[in-house]
Design a protein around this nucleic acid. Sequence first.
DNA 1: CAGCATGACTTGCAATTTGCAAGTTAAATT
DNA 2: AATTTAACTTGCAAATTGCAAGTCATGCTG
Lengths: 160, 160
Amino acid sequence: MGAKPGPKRRSGCPVSISLDIFGDRWSLLIIRDLMVRGFHMFTEFETAGEGIATNILADRLQRLKAAGIITEEAEAADRRCVYYRLTEKGIDLAPVLLDLLVWGSRHEEADAPCAIVQKMAANRDQVLTEVRRRWEQRDPTPLLPWLSGNAARPKQKKKK
Amino acid sequence: MGAKPGPKRRSGCPVSISLDIFGDRWSLLIIRDLMVRGFHMFTEFETAGEGIATNILADRLQRLKAAGIITEEAEAADRRCVYYRLTEKGIDLAPVLLDLLVWGSRHEEADAPCAIVQKMAANRDQVLTEVRRRWEQRDPTPLLPWLSGNAARPKQKKKK
DNA sequence: CAGCATGACTTGCAATTTGCAAGTTAAATT
DNA sequence: AATTTAACTTGCAAATTGCAAGTCATGCTG
């Protein structure tokens, strides 16, 4: 008992609750892009990712915001832009992302050099500390350059 | 090159691939029940969990089997029963489950005593070693007694 | 051994959720 | 002033979920 009734939960199990919040095909990918690719804007998620539809993207951003995982702030320079950032609750998902990375890399044929991922797995605490440091200091350098060279449809128009 | 085309993948990113396989609301709950509650049978998942529909349960079991995460074996004693078990690929999801547990417990109001979860988080490697040991030795004792007392809707028919 | 119970699923729909494509609105740019 | 750009909506069609009920082999019981 004690749990607030707000969003419908299937049970009080923490695992189940976590999945109620971000247990779908897209949420954690958005969080990944915020965490390790230095993305902040709607169009970045839209064009450089795995091809998410804009209505789904808008929906997921709202849900993640409602869940306190990300925040939205207006950008002073260009008032059209909305900047999305991870909250502390959001950056605390770093271990989950790292485990998904390690598992996928170990058990499926993925585009990530196994050696690098194994090294990350071996230095787990250091990696997590570094991820958090970047978040705290708002260091925008992408953590994983090899993830940035994505194999999804590039789909970008060439701008001059 | 590299990746096999088999199941449609949104990209070659390992995180994305992992989510393509078990990124939904139910798969990881089934895996949790196999891993820490000692469940093996269809009805166990069906009745003692968060209220999964039987058609969804059947579908998820098939997908997890197709993905090589679980196996199915007939039980000699009672030929009606099918026993599901985690493969090594499946037990390798233990870190993910543990992280979901820790995150949910830390950031949401869940039914798990925080103290215990914090202790598990602090002794992460030991917990993971123990989970694997139980799997290797087919030790059926539930790992988490406090998870077994589930708070989901009982939804039992008051069958006499 | 007839009859009921059990385990593991199907089947049939209705209600959601997803996935496209196109449209909208406000704020820069040219 | 006209065009772009960013961030979203809207309108459906298609796929997925959820619910209730039904099937079909066993297994158990009187």
